[in-house]
C-alpha cells in the first residue's frame, strides 16, 4: 500500500512517475485500501449470513448458548477495541501534523490494546475449551448441563460453581447424555419418536427445570469461526502496527508523508467495525 511512497526522507512524500500529483497518488492508495476493505466486508458478510440463517432456524440455540459466553469480558473487549480505534485515529492526526513522538506513543498504545484484546480473547477461549463449549462433536453436553445447573439464573460469574455442580449433579447429568451427536442420519420416524424428549434436554434441578436445547455446537461453530477470523485480523493489524511503529520511530512519516499510517488506520478501524457488530450479535442475544 505504500510501495510507491519510497523510503522518504524527513517525512517527504515522494511521487511515483505514474501519478500527476501527490494528492492523486494519495487518493489512489486510499481508494485501493477501501477496495480491499470492501472485500473484507464481503468475506465477513458470508459468515454473518450463516449466522442469520441458523439464528432464524433455531433461535432457541442462540438464546441459550449465548448465556455460556461471558458478557462482561465481551463488553470489556469492546471498550478496549474502541479505545484502540480512538488512539489509532489520533495517531493518524499526529502523523498529519508531524508530531513524531506522539505518533509513536499512540501507535504503541494501539498495539498494547491489541495485545489486551487478544489476551482477553485467550481467557475466553481457554474457558470454552475447559468446559467443552466447542464446535461439532467436540461439544460436551454433560459439561454444559452441569455448568448451567451450577450457574443458576442471572449469575454470570459462576465458572467454579459450575464445576462443583458437575459433581453434585452427576446423576442428573448422566440422564441428559441424550442424542446430541447422533442426530444426523437417523430415519425420520425415529427422529419423530424421540422428539418429545430430545427437542430439549430436560433436567430437574431442585425447584428448577433447566432446559437445554440440542445442537448447541452450531452456535459455537459460528462463534469460533467468526471471532477466530476476527482475531486473525487483529493479529494482522498488530503486525501492521509494529511495522508502523518501527517506521515512525525511524522518522519516515511527516506532514507530507502519512499515507501508510492513514491506510493502516483504516484497516484497524474496519477490524473494530466488525467487532462492533459481532459483540451484540454473539454476546447480547435477547
Amino acid at each position: 500500500m505504500s510501495t510507491a511512497t519510497g523510503n522518504a526522507h524527513e517525512g517527504r512524500h515522494e511521487l511515483a512517475h505514474y501519478f500527476d500529483s501527490t494528492r492523486q497518488q494519495f487518493e489512489s492508495h486510499k481508494l485501493a485500501m477501501w477496495l480491499f476493505l470492501c472485500t473484507e466486508i464481503l468475506m465477513f458478510g458470508g459468515l454473518f449470513c450463516a449466522y442469520a440463517i441458523y439464528r432464524a432456524n433455531h433461535p432457541e440455540i442462540f438464546l441459550y448458548a449465548h448465556t455460556l459466553l461471558d458478557k462482561n469480558l465481551g463488553a470489556i473487549n469492546t471498550i478496549v477495541l474502541l479505545f484502540s480505534s480512538f488512539t489509532m485515529a489520533w495517531a493518524v492526526r499526529a502523523a498529519m501534523l508531524g508530531q513524531r513522538r506522539l505518533l509513536v506513543g499512540l501507535l504503541v498504545v494501539t498495539l498494547l490494546c491489541g495485545f489486551g484484546f487478544m489476551g482477553i480473547k485467550g481467557i475466553e477461549y481457554s474457558h470454552k475449551w475447559k468446559h467443552g463449549f466447542l464446535w461439532g462433536e467436540q461439544f460436551d453436553y454433560t459439561e454444559a448441563v452441569a455448568y448451567a445447573s451450577g450457574k443458576g439464573h442471572g449469575d454470570d460469574h459462576a465458572a467454579e460453581t459450575g464445576h462443583e455442580g458437575a459433581h453434585a449433579d452427576d446423576e442428573a447429568a448422566i440422564h441428559t447424555e441424550v442424542p446430541a451427536a447422533t442426530a444426523g442420519d437417523e430415519d425420520a420416524a425415529a427422529v419423530m419418536a424421540e422428539l418429545d424428549q430430545a427437542a430439549a434436554v430436560t433436567m430437574d434441578h431442585g425447584h428448577d427445570a433447566e432446559r437445554i436445547p440440542r445442537n448447541l455446537h452450531i452456535f459455537f461453530g459460528i462463534y469460533f469461526v467468526m471471532t477466530g477470523l476476527h482475531g486473525i485480523h487483529v493479529l494482522a493489524g498488530m503486525g501492521m502496527l509494529t511495522w508502523l511503529i518501527v517506521r515512525a520511530s525511524r522518522g519516515d512519516f511527516g506532514v507530507r508523508n502519512y499515507t501508510a499510517v492513514d491506510l493502516g488506520g483504516l484497516y484497524w478501524h474496519i477490524v473494530d467495525l466488525i467487532w462492533i457488530f459481532l459483540f451484540p450479535l454473539l454476546y447480547l442475544i435477547h
Binding site: H13, D20, S21, T22, R23, Q25, A89, V92, R93, M96
Partner: peptide
C-alpha cells in the same frame, strides 16, 4: 514535494 497549482498537492486534513 510536488507542488502544483489547483490543489494537486497533498493537503493533510487532520480531524
Amino acid at each position: 514535494v510536488h507542488d502544483e497549482p489547483g490543489g494537486g498537492d497533498l493537503h493533510a486534513h487532520a480531524v
